[in-house]
């Protein structure tokens, strides 16, 4: 992989390839012609760690709104819904992940890709802007996580 930007999560250095775009819900985006390929960023993967369950609520192809809930993901200590990163048509899911989602953790920018879409990519951030976005939200994220860990 080419150049990377980094973001320090404590001792862990999350890496973001400079040739990709990013969304605020912690997905990376690669353009292949009109097609947009999405996956989870190293930041998201660090929060999740070992993903072992992935489920999609819809079958492709399907029209989705930006922010629409489309699936859920679970690791040994965390879970989350997954939301459409942009508005458009969801063309295809990475079916290999359904039987074994571990590629999401092992190879997030490669074999761990999640789905392909066609749609409005204008909301995507350049890598440097994504890192700035992470930086700005980092304190709040830590506080919110800590609150959950303490169950308060």
């Amino acid at each position: 992989m080419s150049e990377c930007l980094t973001f320090q999560m404590g001792k862990y250095e999350a890496r973001f390839p400079a040739d990709l775009f990013y969304t605020r819900n912690h997905m990376w985006m690669r353009t292949e012609g009109r097609r947009l390929v999405f996956g989870l960023t190293a930041y998201a993967v660090r929060l999740l760690k070992d993903v072992y369950f992935l489920d999609w609520q819809t079958s492709a192809p399907v029209e989705v709104e930006r922010g629409q809930e489309i699936g859920s993901i679970e690791s040994s200590k965390a879970l989350s819904s997954i939301f459409a990163p942009v508005q458009g048509t969801l063309l295809r899911f990475n079916d290999d992940l359904l039987s074994d989602p571990s590629a999401i953790s092992i190879d997030p920018y490669g074999a761990g890709w999640l789905f392909e879409m066609e749609g409005d990519a204008s909301v995507a951030l350049r890598p440097e802007d994504y890192v700035k976005f992470l930086d700005a939200g980092w304190e709040a994220t830590q506080r919110a996580l800590k609150k959950q860990v303490q169950g308060s």
Binding site: A44, L48, G67, E74, F83, A144, Q148, V149, Q150, G151
Partner: peptide, 21 residues
């Protein structure tokens, strides 16, 4: 209503971070 954190088998909910919202 789970008491997260003190439990085995219960999970941190990352939804609010992954929702973009």
């Amino acid at each position: 209503g789970a008491n997260l954190g003190s439990i085995s088998g219960l999970k941190i909910d990352l939804t609010r971070f992954f929702g973009g919202d």
